[in-house]
Design a protein around this nucleic acid. Sequence first.
DNA 1: ATCTTTTCTTGATCTATATCAACCCACGGA
DNA 2: TCCGTGGGTTGATATAGATCAAGAAAAGAT
Lengths: 192, 192
Amino acid sequence: MDALFQGLRDQIETLSKLEEDEWREFKTYWKPLSLEKGKQITKIGQVEDYFYYVYEGVVRGYAFKDGEDISIGFSYKGDYSGAYDSFLTRNPSEWCMETTTEVELARIHHDDLMRMFDKYKSIERWGRLFNAKMLIGMSRRQVESRSYTAEERFDRLMDQSPHLFQLVSQRHIASYLGMTPETLSRLRKKVR
Amino acid sequence: MDALFQGLRDQIETLSKLEEDEWREFKTYWKPLSLEKGKQITKIGQVEDYFYYVYEGVVRGYAFKDGEDISIGFSYKGDYSGAYDSFLTRNPSEWCMETTTEVELARIHHDDLMRMFDKYKSIERWGRLFNAKMLIGMSRRQVESRSYTAEERFDRLMDQSPHLFQLVSQRHIASYLGMTPETLSRLRKKVR
DNA sequence: ATCTTTTCTTGATCTATATCAACCCACGGA
DNA sequence: TCCGTGGGTTGATATAGATCAAGAAAAGAT
């Protein structure tokens, strides 16, 4: 619990240093939250009101494409999570989040965060840099998905996040990689 | 020229209002720039030092995938442009920018912008919201490229930016849509 | 205006990956 | 202990779109 808040603070301060009293106040708006495996966090069609910090476990973000569940991304320890799109635009979310393991999170409500942005420049700065970081990550992934074949994408994921294969099911990984479970299965066979 | 700055200011103020004197100072760092068609703005491998505002014309961003030039995106009147990734990370850019028409731009140097972020909270806020806007646009495009077939992507572009077909060559549009020029040509035939 | 170069079109194949279908395996509940 | 349900595998077939190749048209260059 203390460790959770310490992790959160450290994470924030990689982007923008906070004064002791700024942090003391900011901290009061973050609420810890423990969830068991397989819990829905955000549902499609509702506006995302929270911004999440993942302290322990894995959260999966996914959307529906004609009935099929397709994974958008995974958040691990130290990541932020949530239907950030909807959180920003205040439009109903087109995707949802669920826990794939037991998780420990902290979350802050949109309105509280906005108030903090208004009040503290250091937090506003954190917001700017956080968005920048997301942007960079997303543009990397875009290049990734555009420039590589299914097989290359698979190899690269095996390389970069082998642990993922332990944590979530094949079908979720497959949809994340933009291929069918069958194709993924065949690729894995090839490697073995 | 006055119109250019007015456009820039309006654009900025859709995200964050500036005081008269804040704008007066901020404005001094933005330098207007006219370029003819076909000019390289940023080259691969160099760090992007500028952030661009497009007042007139079209700028194309592209990368190289085994020798082939693939378009990442286009910026029109009122958009911002530049190898934003590299601008943020200060790493050498993996893509480059060129004008596809005559253009009128204004640009600000990275260091000046950083100083402005430090000095004015309203500009820091603009930075945060600008990043958020980019993020939203990018996540939309990601969904776009992932959930639709080549034909659907084409139809949607025809719908949303028909003018683009006048402004840039088929091959650039094709690579932007993630298909070969041949495929694009066949799709266009289908529509006619 | 003529020549050259580039872009666009069209047709014939080829290939990666999807789709459909059957089967196996592991695990949780009765 | 047996059964059912969902995830994973494997095989056969289908298909969107790529690739290769060659001609037509448009755009620059001299």
